[in-house]
Amino acid sequence: MKARLASMRWGRRRTLVAIGLLAIPLAGVLVFRIMPAIASFALSFTEWNLIAPPEFVGLSNFEELVGDPTFWQALWNTIYYVGGAVPGIVGVSLALALILNRGIRGIKIFRTVYFLPVVSSMVAVGIMWRWMFNAQYGLVNAGLGFLGIEPINWLGSQTWAMPALIVVTVWREIGFYMIIFLAALQGVPRHLVEAARLDGAGPWQRFWGVTFPMISPVTFFVSIMAMINTFQAFEYMYVMTEGGPRDSTLTLVYYLYLQGFEYFRTGYASAIALVLFTIILVITIVQWKIGERRVVY
């Protein structure tokens, strides 16, 4: 009996140390992450302009959301953007990684160059590309003119603004994902590839038969990561198009920003936030479910 008491005393001492280590981090996570998340949920059932006291309005924000064509437009735009950017990012970065993994000389230089946009802020990249996409004097149209293509009013056209933003997104992100793929490719056991070669598999068969299955978990993970990130697109829209022309590049986060911080409709903005959260949650859950099934080799 006495024995148990002594061990509890010691245990409590260690618990105290643990509390000491965790006090600040946990308090911070609670106050600055968990509470705002919950508050966001609660706010979506209120009407509050930040001046008058908040008013409980039940589901009316969501009712309004359902009937709000701008919201649907923003949702569609976001899906369009994600649907364009993610395959572009994953495809290009994987292709580049595969090439770089073939014993290319100067791999370091290529890696550095491809990584440059990753460290550049989206704001700077956005401004830079706004100039690139300039309808009259931009380099993009100059290049296309070289190929005999008529100038396109990229950012001024409802048709072309979103593709332009997708191009910028892919351009900036590929370096990042390329590095992840490269690391994964280097983790593919060499002997497997060699074995396949001895079995008579050509380069193409070796890729689909050996390399790709080995890196498919990473491909999956990278796609999810890219999806979650692109769903929250805001900066390019803010810097390059302000959501226009005619809301054609208005995304969910941009709409949230407008409602919350331009029109001060915090309740309505929180309702949009909840939609965003739900989408990301669903993606995450899908990732878990699928990930459980197929990740381990």
Binding site: A3, R4, A6, S7, R9, W10, G11
Partner: peptide
């Protein structure tokens, strides 16, 4: 590891704690 029962002496001193 903490000692659950009994005593441990080093150089004549009980050092359990």
């Amino acid at each position: 590891e903490d000692i659950s029962g009994g005593t441990l002496e080093l150089g004549g001193q009980v050092v359990n704690d």
